[in-house]
Amino acid sequence: MKKTISALLIIIMSFSLMSLIVRHDVPDERFITLGKKYPQICHLSDGESTLIKENWVVTAAHAAILLNEELKKGETPQVTIDHKQYDVEKIILHPNFHISETFIENDIALIRIKGNITNIPFAKLYDKQNGKGKEITIVGSGDFGTGLTGPQNWDKITRAATNRIDEIDGQWIIFNFDNPESENTTELEGVSGPGDSGGPAFIDVDNVRYIVGVSSNQQDNGKEGVYGVTEYYARINFYKKWIEKNIE
């Protein structure tokens, strides 16, 4: 079993647990300030998650695998929400989740915590079929860098950045890291980098916060987090019925 888990850990790390990499020409303080507006972000030991009900968070399955193994061994993994720690009670990986050295699919999981969070408004599940072209806000903490450098250091500061959905493809929402000269770039453009898989992509509609996707993986052609990489987030609408069935 130990050998199996070690091999699994290597595969998981090859998919880069994600954090934020941002455009180089915008002061860091702006990304930090934006990050403070998203209290729904929840921190795992090896990733991020999002509060979607008083006692449920959603994350990437590959960020929850090792937590699930800890739970099976009788250990008590925790989720940090608003600087407070909550014990994990149950983890549900998507039944069709699959990960290998080169492939990942159905990368989504649910975590039930002990106790109810009543002081933070949870994010609602996005229910629109087509989000192409919409601006999203992604949130994470961990390795930080810019589109020129890629990931540089992990300072554990929560940041948020923006991007625009370039494509919807079944279970995925897909977007690129556009450089500042591109006509497609956003004012606070950013993508994920090493550190925080499972982090959210949000859209606010009429003062209601929706989670649109969950950070899964990145196509980087050998150099992660630089301008031109492509992000893949598990699309919440694709899994909405499965999520609702399990958290009702």
Rank of each mutant, 00 (worst) to 15 (best):
P121V: 12
A161P: 04
T80R: 13
K73M: 14
G150C: 12
G142Y: 10
N68Q: 13
I174P: 06
G131Q: 03
L110G: 00
L125E: 05
L71D: 08
H62R: 11
N163I: 03
R164E: 11
V79P: 07
P77R: 08
E105I: 06
I157Y: 05
N130L: 00
I111W: 07
T102V: 03
I117Y: 01
G145R: 07
N55W: 01
E75C: 00
Y126S: 10
Q171S: 13
G147I: 04
I91N: 10
I120D: 07
Q85S: 15
G74E: 10
T146K: 05
W56Q: 01
A64C: 04
F97I: 08
I174K: 15
D107Q: 04
Q152T: 09
D169E: 14
N55V: 02
I104D: 12
I138D: 07
I165W: 08
A160L: 07
K72A: 04
T76S: 14
F177Y: 13
W172N: 06
V88A: 10
N176H: 13
F103Y: 15
K84G: 09
F177T: 07
Q171I: 07
T102M: 06
N153M: 12
G131C: 07
G142Q: 11
V139T: 08
T149N: 09
I136L: 13
N179K: 12
D127A: 12
V139R: 06
Q85R: 14
V79L: 09
D87Y: 01
L66T: 14
I165P: 02
S182G: 04
A61L: 02
K114F: 12
N176K: 15
I113K: 05
N68W: 00
L67P: 01
L51G: 08
F103V: 01
N153E: 13
F122Q: 09
D155E: 14
E70I: 00
S100C: 06
N116G: 00
H98D: 01
R112E: 15
Y126V: 07
F103C: 01
L110C: 03
F175R: 06
G142H: 10
A64F: 02
T146N: 09
T50W: 07
A109Q: 06
T102D: 15
V58W: 08
I99F: 01
L110N: 01
T137Q: 13
E54V: 02
I52F: 01
F97K: 05
G133V: 02
I173Q: 11
E135K: 10
D178G: 00
H83N: 15
E69T: 06
N130G: 07
